[in-house]
Amino acid sequence: MKNLLIKFAVVSGIALGLFACYPEGVETTSDTDLVYTNYDPDFNFAGVQTYYLADSIQHIVDEGEEPDRSLDSFIISEIESNLMNLGWSEFDTTLFPEQNPDIAVVASLMVTTTYNVYYYPWYPYWGWGWYKSSNSMDYYGYGWYYPWYGTSYVTSYSTGTVAMLMFDPDRADTTNKLINLSWAGLLNGIAGYGISDAKTRITRGINQAFEQSPYLGGN
């Protein structure tokens, strides 16, 4: 009996220990942050001296939905400071109305909400006490029938995507109305709580996008 208990304790201990230390994954919303950049290798970024940055952000929302513009000016200022860090100058359209900047920069913001629906079928289990092991064996192998609806619950999460796009206005295909992108930087992550958290992550993401694109500075 003693040996049996020891063996049971060893088995239980190993099993519990294993489950208890199963590795976790994402712990905070910022753990989901991604920064993606890509560029046109034929574009000469070293030749860029002036930029034009659109002063509003394009929001991609469902029809009839009002966009939340609370972060627009912040995002634009963060992009602008990175453009200036490249040594580029803001293009003054009033001084040179007939000319184009070397590069134009636009930004867009999209928030997508994903819903997950989980469904719990309710059924009785042995622990409820009405099961009598010796008398109920006639029902061995029976399935459960439950005439009422199960319980369901819904979870949702929102992911935010900030897209920064650069293009040379002189290279726009006016015939086919196509814009050849020179550079794209995308930030994506699960939306957190609070404007402060959002700003921190946006700043970090935008800075990372420029940092991982050293060719923008001609390098």
């Binding site: 753990d31 942050d33 920064v35 993606y36 290798p41 991982q212 694109s213």
Partner: peptide, 10 residues
């Protein structure tokens, strides 16, 4: 290639 992705992988 020309694409770079930064993020936390598990």
């Amino acid at each position: 290639g020309t694409a770079t992705l930064t993020g936390t992988q598990y």
